[in-house]
Structure formats: C-alpha cells, structure tokens
Design a protein around this nucleic acid. Structure first.
Lengths: 141, 141
DNA sequence: TGCTTGTCGACAAGCATTGTCGTTAGTGTG
DNA sequence: CACACTAACGACAATGCTTGTCGACAAGCA
C-alpha cells in the first residue's frame, strides 16, 4: 500500500474525496501487517475520532481495494481481513484458535493447475491458506 | 463419504439417530461432486420431503463433518459448500462468476511452509483455491 | 466565496447461520 | 411388542457481518 500522501493524490485523481476519516484509516493501515478485521480498524479509528462509523471504514476499505491498494482476505474466520501488503506476492498462515495471520512471502513454485484439469477454465489467481496453531495457543490447549 | 447404509451404522454407534430427513441427505450427498451449498441441498431435499427444515440440513451436515464424512468448504462465496469427497486429497478450482467448483485431485508437491516462517506454528492443513472463470462464463463477458 | 456532489453518520435491512423450545419420534430394553 | 429416554424435528427468532437508505454536511473545484 502506498503512503498516506500518495493515497491522497490518487483518491483525488479518481474523484474521490479525502476526508479526515479516510486519512485516519490510511494512517492505521500503513505498514500494518496484523491483517485487522474491519471491526478492529473501526475500534482503533474510533479511539481518535469518536464519531466515525463502521460503514465509513467498510467503504474506505472497499475504495482502497478497488484501487488495488489493499487486498481483502476471506480466510473463513467469519469476518474479512484487510491486507495492505499488495507489493509482495505472498500467502497466509492462520492460527485457527486465535485468528493470528502471518504473511508467507514465499513463491510457491509448481503451483499451477495441471493441463487436463485446466480445460474450460481461465485461472486468474491462487490463494493458499495454511491453517494451524501458533505456539501460544498450542500451550494452553 | 461412505454409503447411506454405512452412515446409518456409524450414526447409531455414535448415539445419533437416523431419521428419514438424514437418510434423504445421505442419499443426496452420495457421489455428489457439485459442492452444493446447504441451501441448495435443502431445496433438493424439500422436493421429496415438503416439511424438512433448513436447520435440519445444517445440523446433519455438521454431524457428518464431525464424523469426518464430509468437508465443509468456505471458498469466500458467501455461503458454505459441502464436499462429500474426503477420500481423495484434493484442492479446488472456483469460477468466480457462476460459483462452479471443480475438484483438483492433484498432489501439489513442495507445498509446505518454509522453516523460517514455520517457527512458533504447528501447521495442520493446507487449502489451495484456484480462482478464475469457466469458459461458459468467459464467453458471455 | 459559493456551488456541486461525494461522503458522512445514524439507522435499518440483508444474508447466512445458529439458538431456543415445545413436540415428535428413533432406539435399546424389558 | 410396548416403554421410556432423549435426540432430533420444525417453527421462529436472534446472531454476526456487511450493505442499503437518506438527509445533512463538507471537500474540492471554479
């Protein structure tokens, strides 16, 4: 994801307005590798702006997604995660107990659909989810 | 997934009861590789049993999942898919336009988390989702 | 500065899934 | 084969996440 200043320019170029709410979200996401849910972003934003609404966070996240500045992940945890790392190709490691998500900046070679199963299909994207338990959660069984 | 008769035995051994509703669902799932949603299973079941409820289908699917007889897939399509194929290790190809899911009975070698990223983590499971468009959907852009 | 129009927050609605609960009906036992 | 025990049923409401609506507001351009 680009810097808050760069995003300001990009948003304006697209005819989108840059409001204090959006700038707050830009700031929160910049360099965040915790894969926050929209709700947790909302909570953090609200600490600085008492009246910001959940809807606004959703909308801004979707705008950022449409511009390719974040990726919205559905890892099957019930709610969606925001991943500002769109520069590096990567996959994810998920702790099914606490919801922790770690980036796997790995290029998984040989990850393609064998020809005979690719028939009638155009593949655009591959998502790999490794599921398990982080040590912290393994300890307290 | 095992046959309807085998499932009857297994359910009874577990203290679970085998009702006409459950038998109908066993029958519907046996050999079904269409990865139906719970809702579509419900619709098909209702064609034979007018009064069966959606809740019952959910419950039976969850029971089957707990027994390891089906896998419940969340491919990010909004609703969950039921996959009765638990015998063969496989991954999935998803048409993001029409929701078609095809099994990929492929053993993807080299699909593991590199040691330095595996630290503090016990990996149980890997899910690979190939997304794209089937030809049918590609044609009518 | 003033106008246009995208965005805001409050609220309610949408969808998939699950909880509640009184009634019905499998199942093992006698 | 009847009984009793209790799991499972269907109807309904509620949950959690996400999105639609809408009038008021303010960002950004001229």
């Amino acid at each position: 994801m680009k810097s808050s200043e760069a995003l300001t320019t990009i948003f304006r170029e697209q005819g989108l307005r840059v409001t204090p709410q959006r700038q707050e979200i830009f700031r929160l996401l910049d360099g965040d590798d915790s894969h926050p849910t929209v709700e947790s972003l909302f909570d953090r934003a609200r600490a600085h702006m008492a009246t910001i609404s959940l809807k606004t966070v959703y909308q801004t996240v979707h705008d950022l997604e449409a511009l390719g500045e974040v990726r919205v992940l559905d890892l099957g945890t019930g709610s969606v995660r925001v991943d500002p790392n769109v520069e590096d190709d990567h996959h994810h490691l998920l702790c099914t107990a606490c919801g922790l998500v770690r980036d796997l900046p790995v290029e998984l070679d040989g990850l393609h659909v064998p020809i005979r199963y690719r028939r009638d299909f155009t593949v655009d994207d591959v998502q790999v989810i490794f599921r398990g338990r982080c040590d912290h959660c393994s300890d307290r069984v």
